[in-house]
Design a protein around this nucleic acid. Sequence first.
DNA 1: GAAAAATAGTTTAAGATTAAAAGAACTCGT
DNA 2: ACGAGTTCTTTTAATCTTAAACTATTTTTC
Lengths: 182, 182
Amino acid sequence: MSSTRPVPREHEHIDAESKVGESPQHHRAELRLWLRLLTVANLIEAEIRKRLRETFDTTLPRFDLMAQLERAPDGILLGELSRRMMVSNGNVTGLVERLVQEGLIERQVSERDRRAALVRLTEHGRTVFADMARAHSDWVAELLGQLPAEEQKALWQRLGDLKLSVHAATRSAPDETKPEKT
Amino acid sequence: MSSTRPVPREHEHIDAESKVGESPQHHRAELRLWLRLLTVANLIEAEIRKRLRETFDTTLPRFDLMAQLERAPDGILLGELSRRMMVSNGNVTGLVERLVQEGLIERQVSERDRRAALVRLTEHGRTVFADMARAHSDWVAELLGQLPAEEQKALWQRLGDLKLSVHAATRSAPDETKPEKT
DNA sequence: GAAAAATAGTTTAAGATTAAAAGAACTCGT
DNA sequence: ACGAGTTCTTTTAATCTTAAACTATTTTTC
């Protein structure tokens, strides 16, 4: 991280990623990496949101929620859902409410534990989601597809390393859903 | 609850990134790359949000806005601000409102064009932001710092390629905010 | 068993976010 | 000047988001 050569001046950008150069030689490499990562992720996400809205009149959170349910045919607890989606409990409550409203998913209070509630896709929801998932997959392929397969793989692997770095720094379990008591 | 655990074989993950394998052999590489990218970005972003809140009782959007203003000592138009932040106009209106309220930035209607309004950091805002920026920079370095400098650089460059791929697919100007003269 | 602690979800209050429409001010051709 | 079109910003309506407080239920402890 020390002696990084005299930064190759980049071709002036003006978006969120531009001009990291305030800090002297203060973590510059990390900052510009983070900004670019963020910019690219936002770019892709924005495009997918836009297409979900235009094509299916839905939103990314709804899509994500349904994607989780599609993987759990027998239903899933709200808490587990919120953990997998990495959002708050209250957030899930609202999303589920609206999706139930639209008849795409169903809620059912558990008998064994009356605090808990299971949610799952309805038949209709499954059908609708199938369409959306195919389109979503195509879109992602379209957006990332310029990148040669090897580069994709290399990028994926490096991002894996980065993920480890972050997990190490936040000392959260590298990936487990249940961080198992320490 | 461990009852329905998907049985992580190999190094399988259980967060948002897990199990892409629905589609036949359908764009699997692109999907898993996108999911990992999204996961990593969210991971970092969540940590930064959390620390901004705990340490400075502020939010990421506010921080981002101030970061933009810090680069424009003479002030910047709201529209330009929203373009740089890659968010909607209305969004900026609200953010600016709250930051003005807190005395961190100031708004001033342009004399030349009374539709337009300039915003800039106040003296107080500049002071406060300096602290936050230093901490932010340290945090990012801490989170990404495990990664060797060369890997950071490689990742940064590959993300640049990815950015180009996305721009090509959305045929939006690769980066320009200001359509360069000539 | 009853009190205490833990767990699952919901509610609340505030903020962030967008798209679409409205409002206000400017430019320019005629 | 006039008005049409453009540009800059705010408003509106809806959704998404979170943290913190709260309710209801189960589990643990003594």
